[in-house]
Amino acid sequence: MPVIEVRDLVRKFGDRTVLNGVTFSVEKGETMIIMGGSGCGKSTLLRHIIGSMKPTSGSIKLFGEEITTMPAPQLEQLRLRFGMNFQFGALLQSLTVGENVALPLVENSRVDPAIIDLIVKMKLELVGLTGFENLKPAEISGGMRKRVGLARAVALDPELLFSDEPTSGLDPIMTAVIDRLTHDLTRKLDMTAVVVTHDMVSAFRIGSKMIVLGAGKRAGTIIAQGSPDEIRNHPDPEVRQFINGEPDGPVPLKLSPEDYIDRLLGHPRQKGVAY
């Protein structure tokens, strides 16, 4: 039984379709990488899977249970089994770093405060932030906040970890540390992970399965899906452009001079007028 099963997921904001028929599944112990250009709906997809957004249509199953129609108390129970690492950390500004990491333990477990203290230190050690327990989130850098977010996400040793761009804005060494951590958690502890990322190096380092969301006309649909090797050798030109990081290709950046003028004017050029 797959840990995550998403079928025909459609989400519309007004007339804009952000997700259009997304279907994929993740097995236990896999690391699923979600890739795609900025604004293609990666974070929206993640928000649907964790149940904070409801789809327009389609089905999402976590641990075999349908979450789109699940009542709130049951969803809360399910949420104890997964951790979410937000893009900007989403730490509680009023609490210290240590209290933030301890929060899931204090609220959702009956562990002795002395043990919680120990777990907090262990989790902060994992992300290389020992000794920062007593600082407020406002006093540390964005990259550090992100790592605290990861420490908090794994505080309850979840079966399933969601990570929204865990390595963007980190230096190469820290990126490697975080990648190693994700890798170890999934390979050694059999945790399942879903990671949204732009970072190709990191994606191929930790991913065991990948999906690429399209841009332009194919926005909100999966244009490629498979193992890292399959994605690396994928024939689709848009996937190739994305992986190799080329400025021009199916996702256009440069326009012809005529199109450029049209776009600036907001209407087609008049005939016989020199621009």
């Binding site: 964790i50 904070s52 979410m84 937000f86 900007f88 509680l92 609220e107 959702n108 908090r152």
Partner: peptide, 18 residues
């Protein structure tokens, strides 16, 4: 409001904290 904007409220919900 600032907590809402900073995704803190959402983070609480995802951590199963009402």
């Amino acid at each position: 409001g600032t907590m809402k904007v900073g995704e803190e409220i959402e983070a609480l919900e995802v951590m199963a904290i009402n």
